[in-house]
Computed example of a mutant assay.
Amino acid sequence: MYVWARMARMIATASSRGPYVMGGESRLAFRCLPTDIDYNVHLNNARYMMLADLGRIDIFLRSGLLRLARKKAWAPMMGGLQSVYVREIRLWRCFEVVSSIESWEGTQVIGKHRFVLDSGETAALIMTNAGIYDRANRRFVDMGEVVAALETSVQPRPLTEPERLFMTSHRRLRDLAKAGD
């Protein structure tokens, strides 16, 4: 089942998982298929990113963000990510992608995707940095405005030390990329 079939399944089952509440988790179950593996017969690194995308889309769909983004001509956009792999996901192994919005500062949102084996062990962790881009006004939207537009009153929690280090590293790497232009 390639990405489109997995996405169709995620969309079709979204209502059964209920609305996404900020601070909660999205849990999507998968099995490592032959189309997912590399020559080491385990989930290839690109597939981790694609499955994390599905976790984010599930959050966007169930939180109402996709509907709001269409209405306001906003676009959720990835800024970057960092991933670590600690255990392999072998062919035919069942696992879950557990996705969450961790916190935010200004226009930047930190997300987390844990790949959890059927044994309960974490196989990989991906931290993401993203934002909501307002195409009409050519700016990133402050997350306080997004939260208010979603008609919720959740507040961001202070960033943890690993999250702050991730944001600093992301900012420096972004500056490096821009300097290369």
Rank of each mutant, 00 (worst) to 15 (best):
M1F: 12
M1P: 06
V3K: 08
M7H: 12
M7A: 02
T13D: 15
S16Q: 15
G18T: 11
Y20R: 11
Y20M: 12
M22K: 07
G24E: 08
E25A: 02
F30V: 02
R31C: 05
R31H: 07
L33C: 10
P34Y: 09
Y39P: 01
V41L: 06
N44L: 05
N44A: 00
N45K: 09
Y48N: 07
Y48E: 05
L51Q: 03
D53I: 12
L54K: 06
I57Q: 15
I57T: 11
S63E: 13
L66H: 10
A69L: 04
A69N: 09
A69V: 06
R70A: 10
K71N: 05
K71Q: 15
A73S: 03
A73C: 07
A75M: 11
M78P: 00
M78N: 03
M78T: 04
G80Y: 04
S83A: 15
E88R: 08
R93S: 04
C94D: 08
V98W: 13
S99E: 05
E102W: 03
E105M: 07
Q108W: 06
K112D: 10
L117Y: 00
S119P: 00
G120M: 06
T122K: 13
T122R: 09
A123H: 07
I126M: 14
T128S: 14
N129G: 10
R135E: 01
N137H: 15
R138Q: 10
F140D: 02
F140V: 00
V141Y: 01
E145N: 01
L150D: 09
L150I: 10
E151H: 15
T152C: 14
S153T: 15
Q155R: 10
P156I: 12
P156C: 11
R157K: 11
P158C: 05
T160C: 02
E161S: 05
P162L: 09
A179L: 12
G180E: 11
G180D: 09
D181Y: 13
